Simulated scan of single mutants.
Amino acid sequence: MVKFQKFRIGDLFTAESGDTDLKKVDIENNGVPVITSGVQNYGILGLATRKAKVIPKNTITVDMFGNVYFRDFEYKMVTHARVFSLIPKQNITRSIGLYFQTCLSKHKRKFSYDNMCVFTKLENETIELPIADAGKLDVEFIENYIRQLEADRLQQLEAYLIATGLNDYALNDEEKKILSLSQINVSDEVRYSKNVVEDEQIKFREFKLAVSYFKNGKKVNVSNDGLFNIMSTKKKINANTITFGGKYPYVARGENQNGIRGYINFDENYLNPEKTISFGQDTATMFYQPKAYFTGDKIQVFSLNNKYGKLNENIALYLIAAVKRALVNFAWGQSSFALEAISELNITLPIDNNNQLHLDYMENYIRAIEKLTIKDVVEYKDKMIVLTKEII
């Protein structure tokens, strides 16, 4: 029987921070990975050659929200986004690092924008670890546990890809064409007025984020051609007053699981409509919600302008990416994402030959990108299954 023991985090790790305020303008196509806060791309902002402190591999990063990632590579860290590194006091392997990551992630629920995670708060917390004789870490148990867990997950992944047809990742002719199209930005008024559009090209123009929004209970109109009608959630449900384990999604401002904190039962009159986008107003988290849902505080509901039709997952993913690009210069905090500010944002999107929003292009583009991503996943899965069979 495996024994477990609680360990103080500060006894297992020391902390390091970045020494240079690396920003998006420093990101290049080569150099050392730069780590920032957030879960997008596992917190990897990109690559940079700018001189900055390099943190050694086989360490762990923790950001202000308590997101934890093991890093098996050297990296740099931004200084403006409150991310720090945990340096193990003893050398660790990849398996042990992933095990630590899981254990440390259990503390994530304690942190938020109003209570940011820093090492001085984390160091006195504890994690439970398996121990061998003399109270030492049971390395053999952890290595075997992670290896078996990965093997199980790979088998599940293989079954899922086959069941959903995603193991067929070959691009069709239409998808190849979509990815090869050049992008003409028609915000150039001269070009736009002359309507210079060549074959095999796709053109873009700007749309206001909002058709309308509500302020102090009154509707504020923005643009008839805007993308979304922005509405407040029907009811702000306090997570501390409900019990999870119900039927409907409860969407909060987190960055994981589509923002869904759990499932609840509540008065169905307060359900927000399906096929909309939830927007966390102080964190700018955005997720497509295919089913009706309840929400917590500071959530806005984005419904696609009726003139553009119905929202589906692929179109929503494209629109969310475009909106996030437009929000890149905003800072965290509710005041930054005030509706009167974001409603006027210009979102650059593809248009068809009638200068209308090109939904077909968006949907096909996301489908093509999905196939390219799945190709990498399938190839990785096949490689790891072969390796796992050799080990086992």
Rank of each mutant, 00 (worst) to 15 (best):
K76A: 01
L319K: 00
L317A: 14
I230R: 00
R8W: 03
K51I: 08
T243Y: 05
K389N: 15
F214L: 11
E16V: 07
R261F: 10
I351V: 12
P88I: 00
F73K: 10
R50S: 11
I385M: 15
R94F: 12
L179E: 06
K6C: 12
N306S: 11
T126D: 02
Q281P: 03
T373V: 14
Q356R: 13
L209P: 01
R253H: 03
I230Q: 00
D138R: 01
M1W: 06
C117E: 01
M116F: 03
E340W: 10
Y75T: 03
L304C: 00
Q257C: 09
F100P: 00
K389Q: 15
A163I: 07
L137V: 04
K106Y: 11
Y288M: 09
I369S: 12
T102Y: 10
R109F: 13
E16D: 13
N30P: 05
Q40E: 15
T120Q: 07
R191T: 14
K247G: 05
G309P: 01
E274P: 06
F65Y: 13
I369V: 14
E140Q: 15
I92M: 02
W332E: 13
S336W: 04
G18H: 03
N353Y: 08
A322R: 06
M116Y: 05
K121I: 08
Y318H: 08
T49F: 03
N224A: 13
I242H: 06
Y169T: 03
H107S: 04
A331I: 09
A321L: 12
L166M: 12
L12K: 04
D297E: 14
K57I: 09
N329Y: 13
D168P: 03
V34D: 02
V62G: 02
N355F: 13
D267P: 07
S112R: 02
E344M: 07
N346I: 04
I142D: 00
R94Y: 13
M362I: 09
Y361A: 13
A48T: 08
M64H: 07
L47T: 02
